[in-house]
Design a protein around this nucleic acid. Structure first.
Length: 505
RNA sequence: GGUCCGUUCGUCUAACGGUUAGGACGCCAGGUUUUCAUCCUGGUAAUAGGGGUUCGAUUCCCCUACGGACUACCA
């Protein structure tokens, strides 16, 4: 059986947004599931839209997501180069071949002439004014110009493009793995430019040529390409190549209202639409990323995988290996999905809670180090065992545990008003004595002995606990008191209690 | 406007023509936690509308409505 080969082929025109990441992910899952190859090709045939740093961004984003490619930019492979600008020299001959076979032609029309043609056609009531079988014979191209004149113009250095000659009356069948058979009549298609006057191929030509040369078996791409799929099928036919299988993925939609998810939605609705933070090289505008916002890549990938695909079972949590195992293109939905930031958070919370204490401690260590605090990992492990399931995003690990590192300097008024009594000082002194007498500082022991102590001394449990919380945390917040004391240790706990006593006298 | 694609709870979605239309997120309620959060239990909520085909349509067909993509010498 032929090896399955798929590719992700983004344009470096800016940061990859989550829809692009999902396309890459599905390609990757499909390749791995079928023991095939996944390649990364950079489609940079539009020099005007090239954005510095975008290519690096794409590569880094895929890496962060754990989407590894077998061939492509940066790592090479048997079909080098994988950047279309570096393959520039090989496209012209294919366009020329089509011309020689009467399947394409030279066109010399200026932008003004093209506009004039469209105006003329729409004035005549033509529903789709375009360069096609209706209009091509009134334009300046090698279909109407004499061979000599064409030759002349080219030799004079006049700018020209190469357009595909679309047959007038033919039905094209696109077999889509997700949508089934899609039929389009060629009279609806226009003579798309294959080769631009700047010497670069357009997407349509470069894409087909490269997919053929790179032996791509399945083209899995966004739905925005569906309308041009018939052209691509025709091109394969023109070249006499076997067309790959197509699968057009439904789009990711805005969480609110309608329309395709765009980069503006992130700022507007307050969630990232990019995997990584991006700073626009020109405007310096900053777009937030999932990584920097504190999402775990596994959670991000899991969330994305389920946006438009489902395994047909009720399983929702998948590791990358499980995704590979369960993935099938047939189970990708047909309709667009509104992106739900809340579900993304839920996934992250789930993954954060499932982390081992050591893993979570390392995450907290980065946070803590960022605050200029240096701590033993063992201390962080203890802390994190208490707070990790309370966190949704990575920075929450710090938010939830800051009081362990910074002793309270102000006390929450509301809590203090609620629990503070004239006899509180005396009570706290008793607790200090109690703690000083303890040898086993495990949370379990503290829990029991503290309760016993409270009962034996006729104290009010709620009052004691909350007053201790006031001393230890400073507010009505955080894990259980016994756990906090256990992690803090005798010395620090006693110190904080004494501090509250001091502050209250 | 034209072409193409789509339409099940608010959202993501399940359901070889026969199910009390299932799950998850969110939301609401109760419980656990003498804080807050987590967690547990329960609840709320959907087949866009109209015609067919069929003993029987979420499921097949048609129409309408609505939504989306595309309509560049951009990808």
């Amino acid at each position: 059986m032929k090896e399955i080969r798929v590719r992700f082929a983004p344009s470096p025109t800016g940061p990859l947004h989550i829809g692009g990441v999902r396309t890459a992910l599905y390609n990757y899952l499909f390749a791995k599931k079928n023991n095939g190859k996944f390649l990364l090709r950079i489609e940079d045939t539009d020099q005007n839209r090239y954005v510095p740093g975008a290519e690096e961004y794409i590569i880094e984003a895929l890496k962060w997501c754990g989407i590894e490619y077998d061939e492509g930019v940066g790592i090479g492979g048997p079909h080098e180069p994988y950047r279309q600008s570096e393959r520039k020299h090989l496209y012209f001959e294919y366009a020329e071949q089509l011309i020689n076979e009467g399947k394409a032609y030279y066109a010399f029309d200026t932008p003004e002439e093209l506009d004039a043609m469209r105006d003329r056609l729409s004035a005549k009531g033509v529903a789709t004014p375009q360069y096609d079988y209706l209009s091509r014979y009134e334009m300046k191209n090698s279909l109407v110009l004499s061979p000599d004149e064409v030759k002349n113009r080219i030799e004079k250095g006049e700018h020209y493009v190469i357009r595909v000659l679309i047959p007038e009356d033919q039905e094209i069948l696109v077999n889509d793995l997700i949508r089934g058979e899609v039929r389009v009549h060629t009279s609806r298609l226009d003579d798309k430019v294959l080769f631009k006057s700047d010497g670069m191929p357009t997407y349509h030509l470069a894409n087909i040529v490269d997919d053929h040369l790179m032996e791509i078996t399945h083209v899995i791409r966004g739905e925005e390409w569906l309308p041009s799929a018939p052209l691509h099928v025709l091109l394969y036919k023109y070249f006499g190549w076997q067309a790959p299988e197509f699968a057009h993925l439904p789009l990711l939609l805005k969480p609110d209202g309608n329309g395709k998810l765009s980069k503006r939605d992130g700022d507007r609705l307050g969630f990232p639409v990019f995997p990584l933070r991006w700073v626009d090289p020109v405007s310096k505008e900053i777009s937030s990323g999932y990584r920097e916002s504190g999402y775990l890549p596994d959670a991000f990938v899991n969330m994305l995988a389920l946006l438009g695909w489902n395994p047909g079972t009720e399983q929702e949590v998948f590791s990358m290996d499980e995704l590979i195992e369960a993935f099938s293109i047939e189970r990708v939905g047909k309709h667009g999905s509104k992106f739900d930031p809340e579900k993304a958070k839920w996934f992250n919370h789930h993954y954060l809670s499932a982390l081992s204490n050591v893993e979570a401690a390392h995450l907290l260590q980065n946070q803590v180090a960022g605050k200029g605090i240096n701590t033993e990992l063992s201390y962080l492990i203890n802390i994190v065992s208490l707070v990790k399931e309370r966190a949704t995003l990575i920075p929450d690990l710090w938010e939830q545990s800051a009081f362990f590192f910074i002793e309270p300097s102000v006390y929450d008024d509301k809590l203090k008003n609620k629990v503070w009594r004239p006899e509180s000082v005396d009570m706290l002194n008793q607790i200090v004595k109690f703690l000083n007498d303890q040898h086993d500082f495990s949370a379990e022991n503290l829990e029991h002995s503290l309760k016993d102590f409270i009962a034996q001394n006729g104290l009010n449990m709620g009052l004691v606990m909350n007053t201790l919380r006031l001393a230890l945390v400073g507010s009505a917040f955080g894990p259980g008191i016994a756990g906090i004391i256990s992690v803090l240790g005798k010395e620090k706990a006693v110190e904080r209690i004494k501090r509250l006593i001091q502050a209250s006298i």
